[in-house]
């Protein structure tokens, strides 16, 4: 019980750190590089965004740094939920719902199943070398600043975003017109994968 609490505290602390970092980064570092960097009082919507983003990143950090796979799973759940919330800010309502249904309803449940089924025999290890925590931090230190630099410094050809509007009808139209071929190929992929997964996992079938 005690360990659980100390773990939770550690997590809360990590989440706080990430939130502080994000807040600092976005309020102090960003404005220097952005043309319209005047101090604007944050709106409620923005605050909700920061909360969601912090939850997402904290969840992802949990996946990356937790030693217990069940905690990783919960971290993934938080990250996926946070991402779904972010989609709403991008006026991608259908995407947010698909994320909830497919990712959290499907993929995460699958992963939880696998964790529950395989946890008892310890870990199913891949027989390759893995970097330790230090190596992981090194990778993070190498990749994250580079990508942040790109995100902040590149003069993205931004144009004024349209008003928030439901996109479902539009996406339906596009699926059956512009993106018809990927739509159909996706069904082939799903068929082939489902058959493949069944072939892999089923018990031996006798010919007779």
């Amino acid at each position: 019980m005690n360990r659980t609490f100390s773990k939770l505290a550690l997590w809360a602390f990590l989440a706080l750190l990430v939130a502080l970092f994000l807040g600092y980064f976005i309020t102090r570092v960003l404005p220097d590089y952005l043309p319209a960097g005047r101090a604007v009082p944050p709106r409620l919507g923005d605050l909700v965004f920061y909360a969601c983003a912090a939850a997402t990143v904290a969840g992802a950090a949990g996946v990356a740094f937790s030693r217990n796979i069940v905690w990783s799973c919960i971290g993934l759940l938080i990250a996926l939920l946070g991402t779904a919330a972010l989609y709403v800010f991008l006026s991608a309502d259908f995407l947010a719902v698909a994320q909830l249904l497919v990712y959290i309803g499907g993929v995460l449940v699958l992963i939880l199943f696998a964790v529950m089924l395989t946890n008892r025999i310890g870990e199913v290890n891949v027989s390759n070398q893995s970097l330790g925590l230090g190596g992981g931090l090194a990778v993070f230190a190498a990749v994250a600043p580079l990508l942040m630099l790109v995100a902040v410094l590149v003069p993205w050809p931004v144009r004024p975003p349209g008003p928030m509007a439901p996109t479902t009808a539009r996406i339906g139209d596009e699926f059956l017109s512009t993106w018809l071929l990927p739509f159909e190929v996706a069904s082939v992929v799903l068929l082939a994968t489902l058959v493949g997964a069944v072939v892999m996992a089923r018990k031996e079938l006798k010919a007779d």
């Binding site: 997402t56 996946v63 994250a144």
Partner: peptide, 18 residues
Amino acid sequence: ALLFALGLVTVVTRRNAV
């Protein structure tokens, strides 16, 4: 970018397939 970087960290530090 943070999600991607943390995903990469997970991939390189974990030995568990799941």
